[in-house]
């Protein structure tokens, strides 16, 4: 029982040292995907260390608190991977190293607490923490090209805790028109940010197929599979604005 624990502590020590790398390298600018993958690597070591240190006599009854901790730890690790451009942790080496140590602590806790709860469960809960980081690498903080303009015109008033600094921080070009904002928010997902068509048809040169009045009528009473936004989501003024915008595509 002692040898796995020693190996586990060594692995944990290595993981903590790697977590402190930003202290040596200064500010590290990495794409979000690579950053998450490095977090996943940290979590592999931390979770393994937790499992090795957490092994216990299977016959003893464990406290239910262990399983709760084991399940919550991966979630805390995910929160520490918060990919904000304004995060203090991202910009200051000490903060960044602190964040990494937190991720290592969560990974260790996931494996350790799971294993303390029942033999074998630590592998599952530690694996869960690693899997979360791996999955996060492909979408958490990662925007596809088409999503950028949508983010740029997101409605600030709709977001909780939205400070001017955060929202104006997005790469907004010129101030878009009301119709363009509605289009980006409600239509671009299917019709493309420039009306090029995605899952929905292209709206390029829509003015050659429908005039303004027909466009308004279509938006107000669309045929499936196009969703009906009026009047639940869009007002009559909104519909007119977005129809006017569509006429310019």
């Amino acid at each position: 029982m002692r040898r796995p624990r020693v190996v586990g502590l060594v692995v944990l020590g290595v993981a903590v040292l790697v977590a402190g790398l930003p202290l040596l390298r200064g500010p590290i600018e990495l794409p979000v995907t690579q950053h998450h993958l490095l977090h996943a690597a940290l979590l592999v070591g931390a979770a393994l260390a937790g499992v090795l240190c957490g092994r216990r006599d299977a016959l003893r009854r464990a406290s239910p608190a262990w399983i709760v901790l084991a399940m919550i730890a991966p979630i805390l690790a995910m929160l520490l991977m918060w990919p904000s451009a304004y995060s203090f942790f991202e910009q200051h080496p000490a903060g960044h190293a602190f964040e990494h140590v937190g991720i290592v602590a969560c990974g260790f806790l996931a494996g350790f607490a799971g294993e303390r709860f029942a033999a074998g469960v630590g592998w599952a809960t530690g694996g869960s923490a690693v899997l979360m980081a791996l999955l996060a690498a492909f979408g958490f903080g990662v925007a596809p090209p088409t999503a950028v303009p949508i983010a740029a015109v997101a409605e600030p008033s709709l977001q909780p805790g939205a400070s001017g600094r955060r929202n104006t921080g997005a790469s907004s070009p010129a101030q878009p028109s009301h119709g363009a904002m509605i289009y980006a928010t409600n239509c671009a997902v299917c019709h493309g940010t420039a009306g090029e068509g995605v899952s929905g048809p292209s709206l390029k040169d829509e003015r050659t197929r429908k005039n303004l009045r027909q466009t308004i009528e279509w938006i107000e009473n669309p045929a499936p599979p196009m969703p009906k936004f009026y009047p639940a989501v869009l007002t009559a003024a909104d519909v007119r604005a977005v129809a006017t915008y569509v006429q310019t595509l």
């Binding site: 991966p74 995910m78 929160l79 904000s84 451009a85 979408g139 596809p144 999503a147 983010a151 929202n167």
Partner: peptide, 26 residues
């Protein structure tokens, strides 16, 4: 559950911080 909590936490983060991007297909 791990997959669900991954996207769930990502959406909670996006709710708290609208600057965080999320890949819709993901």
């Amino acid at each position: 559950g791990t997959a669900g909590l991954t996207v769930g936490v990502a959406l909670i983060v996006r709710w708290l911080d609208p600057t965080v991007a999320i890949d819709p297909l993901w």
